[in-house]
């Protein structure tokens, strides 16, 4: 299948179609110093300002039909994730079943976007999801630290893709980024992109290690210029993982990238989003910062494990008019 693995709306989504960056942007990446000048020329981010804006939007409240729609949309945006050393085929099969039918008692509940596993478990996930529209995402490139030689990373990616991964979540070399070797980071993403073939590429910035919003903005643009289909906040292994202000900055990047190129790229917030209230705050941010067009699984994802059950509980509460409890959703 093509680039959109998730259960989305009808027809091909032109916004996610593979397209080369426009010529003037390609020119920006012709050598390291040009790239560096471009990244340093991006407007700065005032930390207090972006945090205040994120906090203020977080007080938005949505109700009733919109909330139901938001919960279902959030479910469709979940990359149901397990990334433990203790992962087993059994665990991944359970997860795949949950991904297909998150709430077996309620057939109206949509499937999630994808299941996200380590490369060696991709085949298990693919088998478990056969016949569904749920994608299989695999972390790769020496996840989570990214500290390996490029050939090793590429082999990691090839492995995942060969096993049937429809999406690859790579990590950038934060060491290279923080030491200013932007060309290296760029080349690595480009190489991984090539190794992905038809698979969708999500570029994990690991914003908790980039530390500043200025770095997040630069890394976002770097990843978009190098061809990432998504930019993703975190591995989930570093604290802080996704935060609202960081997601704001990344949403601004895809918004601005669209304004400049006409191409819509996605954002994935991963790690630390555990309940519906938080998820809806992210959707508010998506709506207000990037725009309504981004409120689709092809352009926004949650990387999460426990979030799904809370979404299901809240969904029941909305539909049934009373609060639900953890014993009424499956522990997987």
């Amino acid at each position: 299948m093509a680039a959109a693995p998730q259960a989305t709306t009808s027809g091909a989504d032109p916004t996610t179609a593979r397209a080369a960056p426009p010529a003037d942007l390609a020119d920006l990446t012709r050598d390291e110093s040009t790239l560096r000048r471009f990244l340093y020329g991006l407007p700065g981010v005032d930390a207090v300002g972006v945090e205040a804006r994120a906090a203020s939007l977080a007080t938005r409240s949505i109700k009733k039909a919109s909330k139901l729609w938001a919960i279902d949309t959030a479910i469709r945006m979940v990359d149901l994730t397990t990334l433990e050393g203790a992962d087993t085929p059994g665990k991944v099969r359970t997860l795949a079943a949950k991904a297909r039918r998150p709430d077996p008692e309620r057939p109206g509940v949509p499937s999630v976007a994808a299941v996200c596993v380590y490369p060696d478990l991709v085949a298990t996930a693919v088998a478990g999801l056969a016949g569904s529209e749920v994608g299989v995402a695999s972390v790769a490139t020496a996840f989570p630290s990214g500290r390996a030689a490029l050939p090793v990373k590429l082999a990691d990616v090839a492995d995942a893709v060969a096993a049937g991964a429809t999406e690859v979540d790579m990590v950038i070399d934060r060491g290279a980024f923080l030491s200013g070797r932007y060309g290296l980071v760029f080349d690595e993403i480009t190489a991984v992109r090539a190794a992905c073939g038809e698979a969708h590429l999500k570029v994990i910035l690991e914003t908790g290690e980039l530390a500043t919003y200025d770095n997040v903005r630069r890394a976002s643009w770097l990843a978009l210029l190098a061809g990432g289909d998504f930019i993703k906040t975190s591995t989930g292994k570093i604290s802080p993982a996704a935060t609202l202000p960081v997601t704001h900055v990344m949403l601004q990047a895809v918004r601005d990238f669209h304004a400049r190129t006409g191409q819509r790229r996605g954002v994935k917030a991963a790690g630390g989003i555990r309940n519906t209230k938080e998820a809806i705050r992210y959707l508010v941010a998506v709506h207000e910062v990037a725009g309504e067009e981004w409120l689709t699984p092809s352009l926004f994802r949650f990387g999460a494990s426990s979030l799904l059950n809370d979404l299901l509980m809240q969904r029941r509460a909305q539909h049934e008019g009373h609060y639900s409890g953890p014993d009424y959703v499956t522990v997987d």
Partner: peptide, 10 residues
């Protein structure tokens, strides 16, 4: 496609 609305939350 979407039905995103901030319903009144008075």
């Amino acid at each position: 496609m979407t039905s995103w609305e901030y319903a009144p939350a008075p």
